[in-house]
């Protein structure tokens, strides 16, 4: 077998980052905050959204004006959303491959899952890195419930932190419990309605899969 030297390599294909989480936790809102930030930093990006039987989220992102509409592909899962990102990610793999072919300089594909439950997770055949978005309004006991998504994601995002005092949530305790069940893996706080905390999410993704620094 011949060996080859490979210390001056360039990336092949875009990095693929998954965004999962329960219905209404703010996945699309996070996506809408991430897109302009990555574009502003010069990252060549595209998006895949997953919905049950519509292209609702894709249409929302296309209409947003944040990104060229043709760079947003919709996958209609037609079943439990986690099936399309874990058990059989064929449709999403095909969509990501299509984007890689269409845009040779593509650096990052953000793949938003359909809203699901706390047990949803991404196959590492589909993504290189994945986020799980929960929100304070869903209850501060979510980390304690030890859902697969909360436990195994690379980055846990706790969204809508501004609502904590209005829904009687003890945010510091929620964060501490999240860090405990995740054995110290990364957790970040956001308010995606205003964009608070999103820069840190961008920085984390850039560091882990774009290898910026």
């Amino acid at each position: 077998m011949s060996a080859q030297l490979n210390s001056h390599a360039r990336p092949r294909g875009a990095a693929r980052v998954g965004i999962g989480g329960p219905v209404g936790s703010g996945k699309t809102a996070l996506l809408e905050q991430l897109i302009p930030r990555f574009i502003a930093r010069g990252t060549d990006i595209a998006v895949i959204t997953n919905d049950l039987v519509t292209a609702e989220d894709a249409e929302r992102v296309r209409r947003s004006g944040l990104i060229a509409p043709e760079r947003v592909l919709a996958v209609e899962t037609g079943a439990c959303p986690h099936t399309a990102i874990r058990e059989d990610p064929t449709l999403n793999l095909a969509a990501a491959d299509e984007l890689d072919r269409a845009y040779p300089g593509l650096e990052l594909i953000l793949i938003e899952s359909g809203g699901d439950n706390l047990a949803s997770s991404f196959s590492l055949d589909l993504v290189d890195y994945w986020l799980f978005v929960i929100d304070v309004a869903g209850g501060d006991d979510i980390p304690r419930k030890r859902g697969l998504g909360v436990l195994q994601c690379d980055l846990l995002v706790i969204n809508k932190v501004d609502l904590a005092p209005h829904v009687n949530v003890n945010l510091p305790r929620m964060v501490a419990e999240a860090e405990e069940v995740r054995a110290g893996r990364a957790t970040l706080l956001t308010n995606c309605a205003r964009g608070d905390g999103v820069d840190a999410v961008v920085e984390r993704i850039a560091q882990e899969v774009l290898f910026d620094r």
Binding site: M1, A3, Q4, N6, S7, A9, R10, P11, R12
Partner: peptide, 15 residues
């Protein structure tokens, strides 16, 4: 160090 290839496996006698 940026790496993009699996050169081979340590169980290969040459490697």
């Amino acid at each position: 160090l940026r790496l993009t290839d699996i050169v081979g496996n340590a169980s290969d006698p040459d490697i």
